[in-house]
């Protein structure tokens, strides 16, 4: 196949054509400025889950033993606030989503995952395709980080103190991928890798917010590590499906507030 030579004429013509398009595009984006909205809410556990179990820190007990480690599978704060729920936009594998101009560029700052006090910090995090995940070890004991994604290649690497391990990923995952340390088997973390910015993890107060979503009807996934998809969970104006998803309409220039989403212990397998 031969490549057509670019004549000066054709370059000029292309330039004009592009300029025209740029104006059209500008008009469009101006018209669309308000066509973005926000989703927010808060997860609250209803009912008693009992106390989180203490970790038997029998590996490196002389160091790990002094951190009063607790099982972090379910972290419930005041008034039942449920942390570490992943909320994100569901997309079929063949689909992509329009991304707000402010969010188009993938952050050049790495997302940090530290091995600290014989646990992962943070415990749950989101990462965009192309963004760097920087794994470090702040402990005086050895840790390995064993990440097992589904679509992306995994790794299982010893993490030394002096040089953090930097990783980037190329493919969108459907669910959060588990990270483990094989030396300290209680250590777990979850990393959600997506090719768009519409994802978050609930904070210690159970709240979440995803801003600058394209307005309109979307399906969202609600996922918690204890039982995965948060099935059949009711909230004001809706219910999650058997797959832990809900179709929600994001209002243009406004916020859809799901309010307090009540999580019964059975959703968490309790």
């Amino acid at each position: 196949m031969s490549i057509p030579k670019l004549t000066t004429q054709s370059v000029q013509a292309t330039a004009k054509f592009c300029a025209a398009w740029a104006i059209v595009a500008m008009l469009f984006s101006a018209a669309n400025a308000a066509d973005w909205g926000t989703l927010k809410g808060r997860f609250v556990v209803e009912g008693d889950l009992g106390e989180a179990a203490a970790v038997n820190a029998n590996k490196d007990p002389e160091f790990c033993g002094k951190h009063n480690l607790m099982d972090e599978a379910i972290i419930v704060g005041e008034e039942g606030a449920l942390a570490n729920v992943f909320v994100y936009l569901y997309l079929k594998s063949s689909k992509t989503v329009e991304i707000h101009p402010d969010l188009e560029k993938v952050d050049t700052e790495p997302v940090l995952l530290d091995n600290k006090g014989c646990r992962f910090e943070p415990h749950a995090l989101v990462l965009r395709v192309g963004q760097s995940l920087e794994i470090s070890n702040s402990d005086p004991v050895a840790h390995n980080t064993n990440l097992t994604p589904t679509k992306n290649p995994g790794f299982n690497q010893i993490i030394p103190n002096d040089s953090p391990l930097a990783k980037t990923f190329e493919k969108r995952e459907s669910y959060p991928s588990p990270a483990a340390c094989n030396i300290h088997p209680w250590m777990k973390a979850y990393v959600l890798i997506r090719d768009n910015p519409y994802m978050t993890v609930t904070a210690a107060d159970g709240s979440f917010e995803i801003a600058n979503l394209p307005a309109g009807k979307h399906e969202f996934i609600f996922w918690h590590e204890s039982k995965g998809n948060m099935k059949n969970m009711t909230f004001s104006g809706g219910k999650t499906s058997r797959k832990g998803r809900a179709k929600l309409t994001i209002p243009a220039g406004d916020t859809l507030d799901l309010g307090d989403i009540k999580v019964s212990p059975s959703v968490l397998g309790k």
Binding site: N144, N146, F155, N156, Q157, I158, L165, K167, N182
Partner: peptide, 11 residues
């Protein structure tokens, strides 16, 4: 791979 034994070289 597939076992706990981690890598020490480049990934």
């Amino acid at each position: 791979p597939g076992t706990p034994m981690p890598a020490t070289g480049s990934a």
